[in-house]
Design a protein around this nucleic acid. Structure first.
Lengths: 213, 213
DNA sequence: CATTGTGAACTCATTCACAGCG
DNA sequence: CGCTGTGAATGAGTTCACAATG
């Protein structure tokens, strides 16, 4: 157990989903939940829920289930979201601004501490209270100064690699990439991609091939 | 070959990535590309590229590679994006507006033909030329009238299932869900989720466990 | 002769089935 | 007794290795 390299990536994704369902269950007044109920809520197999949790410890009570509140804490520890993280965002188009305003981030301890753009009209402004727009070329200094842990890229694809490289040089080793570029990163760095058109392509593929429109 | 049920979902995702790299290669003046080069660009194994394409036909020339332009057409056919699709969006917060404005969608033949919200201040307005905001309760009629193929949900999680159900009742069988809700759909319907916080959770998990901050 | 296309081998992930236990 | 925890079985997806070929 706890041989981290053997944990499927999909398990981490599901843990995040479990956490959200647990929050809803708590809100609805539940104290305990079984793997069967969690599985139904998350649309997975009950054994999958138990196995996913089993990679990290024994959190349940046999014959009963899991404590809705305790399990949230355990998952937060596993995902390392039982702390705050400082986020810097590059690219202040509509998407960038929408993300800055996205309530779920603050609620979960992800704080935007700096924004970057190359547009002189935007640089120097304060988007929301406490969040200033810096020239992209200052990225390295600001990263150090404000202790940025995670970089978010919402620029056009053509600029994405250069920005990612700046983050890597500034020792930001984790990037969330909303551009459609494939980012090449050094071995010790992590990039997660969120690509809207890929998801739409999957939908249309299935519409044609599974449903057959 | 072409036993569609046996094609990994990850293959479809990668086809979409291959397509984007092919567009860039064409722009850069390339006429042919090998599986090795594509693999490097997309950060996968060369055999993976060939196998992915092999599910759908023989598109390459042995000893040479793939025609950059022809292969784009083939992939577009496979993904069913060699046509236009009508999209309806529900939820006109910052994210919804950002998506409507997102250039990559129109460029790829995804057209927003209707927007829905429950806010009386927004209903009746025309967000951009040709895109009117309707009351969410009119969804079923408008879907028929404007031939909506795909529904996009960018509302808070609490409203998502109800909206999805409305889409399903109106025979919209494909949904792109940006809310954090797990949507329960009838068997013949398709839901793809885009969940920002899940991706951030994956980043922090890896920061802690792989890199060890 | 470089590169594709693909069966076979392998690796990784999910599900089963039941022992273990509160 | 019911549900968890987990080794074993199954299934899915990736990579290898090489025959096929333009």
């Amino acid at each position: 157990m706890n041989n981290i390299s053997k944990i499927p990536k999909a398990t981490i994704t599901r843990l995040s989903l479990y956490l959200r369902q647990l929050e809803l269950l708590e809100f609805d007044g539940y104290r305990m939940v079984s793997s069967g109920k969690m599985a139904w809520l998350c649309q997975v197999n009950p054994a999958q829920v138990r196995k996913d949790l089993g990679y990290f410890g024994e959190f349940g009570i046999r014959g009963v289930g899991y404590d809705v509140i305790d399990l949230q804490e355990e998952i937060k520890k596993i995902l390392a979201i039982n702390r705050e993280w400082n986020v810097g965002i590059v690219g202040l188009g509509n998407l960038g601004l929408a993300l800055i305003d996205y309530q779920n981030f603050q609620a979960r301890g992800f704080y935007f501490v700096a924004a970057f753009d190359s547009d002189p009209l935007k640089i120097g402004r304060e988007i929301v209270s406490g969040l200033k727009v810096f020239d992209f070329r200052e990225l390295r200094n600001i990263v150090k100064e404000l202790n940025i842990d995670i970089g978010i890229i919402t620029t056009p694809a053509s600029a994405a690699q250069k920005i990612a490289d700046s983050f890597f040089q500034a020792d930001v080793t984790a990037i969330l990439n909303f551009s459609s570029a494939q980012i090449h990163a050094p071995g010790h760095c992590i990039v997660e991609n969120i690509d809207f058109t890929v998801k739409l392509d999957i939908l249309t593929y299935k519409l044609k091939n599974v449903i057959g429109i």
